[in-house]
């Protein structure tokens, strides 16, 4: 393939040390980007809906009574850190000679994601306990569609990471694993961006 030399796709570029993936990465990563952009539209519409419904509390509690900035801070820190540790995993894929650093960084990332998900679940439980479960009002519905959907994405990313580690165990770091880690990287960093918008629009915007 003549275009193999000219791979300048976004995300981690594995470079010439990994000639086996070069040709496929171009197409695969672009396809995954397209998917992410489609997903971005989903989130955008949920944000617009949330912005419209934030005042539809139907006599129930609103954002300022429900959100706990401390918990959000921990979640945010965990997720931002996980983006960095995933970056380390990407670099390990690119430069390391053995699978060990890659798996190690993936595990750290998973740990941070677990912290994030744990605190998020705690937040949700808190809201439901305060009588602001999703069926309480339009606002609660919009919240519980938007934020948990992001959480579900993170969870899916975790499942994917575990599946990739299992693949490494069986097949070693082959072409499919490399492509998978690259795409999971895009996914992970994309989710970080969505979270930035969530903590801005939902939490900080609600508490401001």
């Amino acid at each position: 393939m003549s275009r193999a030399k000219d791979v300048r796709h976004p995300g981690l570029r594995l470079g010439e040390g990994h000639p086996d993936v070069a040709a496929d990465a171009e197409e695969m990563n672009f396809g995954f980007w397209v998917f992410l952009m489609s997903d971005a539209i989903v989130f955008a519409l949920l944000f617009a809906t949330y912005a419209r419904m934030v005042s539809s509390v139907a006599g129930g509690l609103g954002p300022e009574a429900l959100f706990d900035l401390k918990s959000i801070t921990i979640e945010t820190a965990a997720l931002l850190a996980s983006s960095f540790t995933f970056g380390m995993a990407s670099l390990a894929l690119k430069y390391a000679r053995s699978p060990r650093p890659l798996v190690k960084w993936l595990c750290v990332t998973l740990l941070l994601a677990a912290v994030f998900l744990g605190f998020e679940l705690h937040d949700f439980a808190h809201m439901i306990a305060m009588g602001a479960g999703p069926s309480r009002s339009g606002f609660a519905s919009a919240f519980f569609a938007l934020v948990p959907l992001h959480g579900l994405h993170v969870l899916a990313g975790c499942v994917w990471a575990i599946a990739l580690m299992a693949q490494i165990a069986i097949h070693g770091i082959d072409k499919e694993v490399k492509l998978g880690v690259q795409r999971l990287g895009l996914f992970w960093h994309f989710l970080d961006i969505v979270w930035v918008v969530i903590f801005t629009v939902v939490y900080l915007g609600g508490l401001a």
Binding site: G11, D192, V196, T200, V201, L204
Partner: peptide
């Protein structure tokens, strides 16, 4: 916070997603 979020989105695109 809106402006800071926008800046941060650009940061993520630039440094993590390598755009």
């Amino acid at each position: 916070i809106g402006v800071l979020a926008l800046v941060q989105v650009v940061v993520h695109f630039r440094f993590f997603l390598h755009i």
